[in-house]
Computed example of a mutant assay.
Amino acid sequence: MIKRELIYFLTAVMFFTRIPIPFKVPYSSEIMNKSQKYFPLIGYIVGAMSVLVYICASYLFSKEIAIVLSIIGTVLLTGAFHEDGFTDICDSFGGGYGKEKIMTIMKDSRIGAYGVIGIVLLLLLKFLALVELAHLSTSLLLITMINGHVTSRFAAATAIYTHKYVRDTDDSKSKPMAQQKPSYTSLLCSLILTIIPYILFDSWLFIIPFFVCYLGKMYLTMYFKKHIGGYTGDCLGTIQQVCEVLFYLTTLTLWKFM
């Protein structure tokens, strides 16, 4: 049983990060589907990278430069996996009218003006929010980085339970996950993994950013359902990126004005 769960976890690591696995891990649609319970753990890995880079860089540079380097570290670790999905959504929904046109643009690997503008604004907003958090409290910044990465991935994963997958191409990376909805036991496992840092930080205020993220996920999935009938892998990446920023902004607002 432990070996099987380890395979599920390593599958999630290989899917969402560039971390090399030194041995061969079996793959199937069923394994990919069951690996979803460990998506929050990917948030821990990416969040830990962000924290580690920030701490190391802050000994040499200003807080602002350290935050930029921490963001670069997470992008390199994930291969800009979710950022790429966000740019595709900006391009397809910004330049497409009707489901067929939107889906056609979404499949195009080229990036357009909407995608460039969208990702620049998103990263700028993420940077400025983290800078303000850093000036409030270093410990608050570090726990928010981890919570933001974990919670946003949990929020994105819940869309698999609540909405229909609509992209039907065989080369889609998210298709194996969407072929069969995972059990609600897996969802409960993901939720437990997500709330661990909330308990460790011992502050009830973090429950508010959690729900704000989920509300953001609900709005985005309703928007996607209205225009294309469900979600795609790019939609999940967009949910993760937007919810991460929502988490930072909500946390900043709470600690700044309360």
Rank of each mutant, 00 (worst) to 15 (best):
P209D: 14
A159L: 11
I196V: 15
Q241I: 02
V68R: 00
I42A: 08
A156H: 07
A129N: 06
I45E: 10
I19A: 01
V116T: 11
I228C: 11
E132F: 06
P197W: 04
I102S: 03
F257Y: 15
L191D: 02
A155R: 00
Y38H: 11
D91S: 07
E30R: 10
C213G: 12
N147Y: 01
L187R: 12
F201M: 03
F93R: 13
T194L: 01
H149S: 14
D234W: 02
N33M: 14
V51E: 03
S35M: 03
V51Y: 05
G73C: 13
K226W: 05
V68S: 12
I105H: 10
I111A: 07
R153S: 05
S50F: 00
V242W: 03
L121D: 14
G230P: 01
G233F: 02
Y114N: 05
L215F: 10
F210Y: 09
S174L: 05
Y184M: 14
I45F: 04
Q240C: 05
I67F: 09
G237R: 05
E83P: 00
L122H: 15
F247R: 04
Y8G: 06
G79K: 12
E83R: 02
V51S: 07
L41C: 08
G94V: 10
V46P: 06
Y97D: 12
I199K: 02
V212S: 01
T138L: 08
I143S: 14
D170Q: 11
T238G: 13
S186Q: 11
M32P: 07
I65V: 15
L130K: 07
W255Y: 15
H163Q: 13
L140H: 13
G115S: 12
L141R: 07
I111Q: 09
L124G: 14
D84R: 01
V120L: 15
S70N: 12
K126M: 15
I207S: 07
T138A: 03
I208M: 00
N33E: 15
K101T: 06
T151H: 01
D202R: 09
T138C: 00
L121M: 13
V51W: 04
A155T: 07
I207A: 14
P209L: 10
S186K: 09
T238S: 15
L200M: 14
T221D: 04
K101I: 01
K63D: 13
A156T: 12
I31N: 02
L122T: 08
T185I: 09
I42R: 08
S50V: 12
L52G: 13
G115P: 06
L200N: 07
M222R: 13
E64F: 10
Q180T: 11
P20I: 01
D202A: 07
K181W: 00
F154T: 08
S174Y: 05
L220N: 06
S190T: 05
P209N: 15
L140Y: 12
S190W: 04
I207L: 15
T221P: 00
F201L: 01
Q36L: 11
L191V: 05
K217L: 00
P197D: 04
F224N: 08
Y165S: 05
R4Y: 03
S190I: 04
G229T: 08
H135K: 13
K175R: 15
G118C: 11
A155I: 14
S62I: 08
Y219L: 10
I42W: 01
F201G: 11
S172F: 01
I207C: 10
R167S: 10
L123T: 06
P176T: 06
S92R: 05
G43Y: 03
C243F: 04
K164L: 01
L140Q: 14
